[in-house]
Amino acid sequence: MDNIKVSVIVPVFNSSQYIGATLDSIINQDFDDFEIIVIDDGSSDNSLDIVNEKLNSTNLPNTIIHQENQGVSAARNKGIEVSNGDYLVFVDADDYITPNHLSELYNCETDFSLIQVVKKEGDTTSKPHVYSQDVISTKEFIEMELKMEIPFNFVQLIYKADIIKDNSIKFSSDYVYGEDTYFALIALSYGDKIAISNEATYYYMQHSQSAIRTSQFRRFDIVNIFEELASFYKSKGLDDLSQLIITSRIPKAIFGNMNYFFYNGYDFDEVINKMKELDLFNKLSKFEGDSKFKLKIKLFLLNPKIYYNVWKKLKNSID
């Protein structure tokens, strides 16, 4: 296919309730010369029928792939493999984008561009982040993400296809949580600049089933992902980024996910035993940075049970 500027990749698995609206939002872009690639990852509902109906009624270039269920990472990797665009954009099957999403993202002057995401749950929407810069270096952006100074989701970016394909960057099927952040932070390390738009054009839909504990403690997998990322950065001579992962990103991820488990009613002893099993106490102790957060970690490590009881009392007083 000629003159394909952007490939929009949409993995689908049992998303019949949402995929129609998602595809409508992609089809109705105020941008020319893009293709839609949908990978149906073994859906057992009528998602594929809806996809066929929507895309067969449009003149936009599109590819529909049906494969046995292999997971969202394999589906996205397949989309990358068959894509024809100069740039890649990812949209999840239950989210939607505003009509100017692609036009805000497309920028042939930088390797990446970024828009803002709005989280929407029922009638509640989050406020998008606002940047003061129009352009930022990829390294500065990575540093901000590793310090968790900015909210970030990999769908905010448009990716130069050559960077992804020439460096064989793929989503890892070994993990079910955090693999998309890993993909983005690997890709960004091969680029130079990110163009920034403060337009909120991606709506990340949060549904009640999102909180269901289907993966148990798999959220702690993100520690392994960031350890792999630290090794990757070190191999590229980016020792400062590698060290930042160990002393900031991993401890914050551990602490954040621990509190997520507490908030969602996981048993205290189960959480603590899992953390001991994964050597997370030792990794948590390596935090360097904000003194208030460091104090929280110190108090927790000193006596996890007291920390938990105080946290629970404060949580109940707020609820």
Rank of each mutant, 00 (worst) to 15 (best):
I164Q: 12
L102Y: 02
N282C: 02
I250F: 03
D49Y: 11
A21I: 13
I222K: 02
N107K: 03
S210D: 15
L278N: 08
N84L: 15
D174E: 15
A230E: 08
Y202M: 02
S208M: 08
Y87N: 01
Y190D: 07
R218Q: 14
S242D: 01
V89C: 12
M148G: 09
Y131P: 00
N316A: 06
K312W: 11
D192M: 06
G122A: 10
A195Y: 07
Y182H: 14
Y159A: 13
N316V: 00
L295G: 02
I246S: 12
Y202L: 00
I39F: 08
G256A: 10
F217V: 03
F31T: 01
N14M: 00
M1I: 12
E68S: 10
N316K: 05
M205N: 11
S132M: 04
I27Y: 01
H207G: 13
R76E: 01
V117P: 00
K170V: 07
F220I: 07
D111N: 10
S137P: 01
D41R: 05
F268K: 11
L157D: 03
F262A: 07
N100Q: 08
F31M: 02
D239Q: 13
K139R: 14
S47L: 04
K234C: 03
Y18I: 00
N3Y: 06
I212W: 10
F261M: 08
N309D: 15
S126K: 00
F268G: 06
K170P: 04
